[in-house]
């Protein structure tokens, strides 16, 4: 561990903090891809129904509907049950392997602590309120940032979609801004917005804003001209066109993007917490790492992925409810 100490003395503090950060990022990405995979499996199954029926041009209406009802009744309940249990099984297997590695003493326990000690630390940190305190800070940063980011991103997206010149003017700036790694300008933002949650919120806003804007533009562009014509010949006002056509149409694309944005928001908050160690789960992990409290690092990391996963699931449910018409295909 001498190397670590050297590093801290010779290089700026922020740099040394990158290794847990990298681990975090890998972990979060794994979490996201896992969640994406499991959800997309569910969706792909549901998507099959409308596709099959939409392709068929049936002769009578009644037969068509009857066929669809049957199709839904056929849905394999057992398979669904297994799918629902699968994630739990995965976690169980990981814990078993983890315990195996610990028991076999492949790595010293300060690198990989036992599942039991992590659980113990978890219970302790819940009891003395530390975990929930840091969690609430990170959650605040994430949610506030997400809200502001989505608000700014979608409004700007709406404006850009309607004023094409703006897109040409702004796109180089936005793309350059977006392709710069967050960690690169995070220290600057901390300088400007301070050590507290404001700076982390700003980081989250920046991370969330771009995909939201792009999705809004894509959503608005995807509104078929034919539907616009329908609204026009019915003498819809500009406001009605917006609330009853553009907004719902963009919402479909926006919600799909929001799932990834929600997890990106957690990453943003944690990046901020690593760069300026203060409060929040990211800071908790950074501090625990400095004290070689590896079980607490584990608790922090696991809590973070659970947080990201919960947000993802929440948005998925929102999407499932708001876009229920999608499960029946498109016109």
């Amino acid at each position: 561990m001498r190397e670590g100490e050297n590093c801290e003395r010779m290089l700026p503090v922020g740099f040394c903090n990158t290794w847990p950060l990298v681990m975090m990022l890998i972990h979060m990405l794994a979490g996201v891809s896992y969640a994406t995979a499991s959800i997309s499996i569910l969706e792909s199954g549901a998507f099959l129904i409308p596709f099959q029926s939409a392709k068929k041009s049936s002769t009578t209406m009644k037969a068509d509907v009857r066929r669809q009802r049957q199709k839904r009744a056929y849905s394999p309940m057992l398979l669904k049950g297994i799918r629902r249990l699968a994630p739990i099984l995965t976690v169980l297997i990981i814990v078993i392997i983890w315990q195996g590695i610990y028991t076999a003493e492949v790595y010293p326990s300060f690198l990989i602590p036992s599942p039991a000690s992590v659980l113990e630390t978890f219970v302790e940190s819940v009891q003395d309120g530390i975990l929930l305190y840091h969690l609430s800070i990170t959650l605040q940063e994430t949610l506030i940032g997400l809200l502001i980011g989505v608000a700014i991103g979608s409004s700007l997206g709406y404006i850009i979609a309607n004023v094409p010149i703006l897109e040409d003017l702004l796109s180089p700036l936005i793309v350059a801004f977006q392709s710069t790694p967050t960690i690169a300008y995070a220290p600057l933002l901390i300088l400007w917005f301070g050590n507290d949650i404001q700076s982390k919120i700003v980081i989250v806003v920046i991370i969330v804003f771009f995909p939201t804007m792009m999705n809004t533009i894509a959503g608005l562009r995807a509104v078929p001209e034919g539907l616009r014509d329908v609204f026009k010949v019915m003498k819809a006002t500009r406001w009605q066109l917006f609330t009853k056509l553009e907004l719902p149409a963009a919402l479909a694309v926006l919600l799909v993007g929001l799932k990834t944005s929600a997890t990106l928001a957690v990453i943003g908050a944690v990046v901020g917490e690593f760069v300026s160690v203060n409060e929040g789960l990211g800071s908790m992990v950074a501090i625990a790492r400095n004290q070689y409290d590896t079980p607490l690092v584990f608790v922090g990391v696991i809590s973070l992925s659970l947080l990201a996963l919960s947000l993802y699931t929440l948005v998925s449910f929102l999407e499932y409810y708001l876009l229920r018409w999608r499960r029946f295909g498109r016109t």
């Binding site: 409308p50 029926s53 041009s57 049936s58 209406m61 068509d64 509907v65 029946f328 295909g329 498109r330």
Partner: peptide, 14 residues
């Protein structure tokens, strides 16, 4: 009978 169906559930004629 089809009031509550979504367009994706309709045949072309419907």
């Amino acid at each position: 009978e089809y009031e509550t169906l979504y367009p994706g559930q309709l045949s072309g004629g419907m």
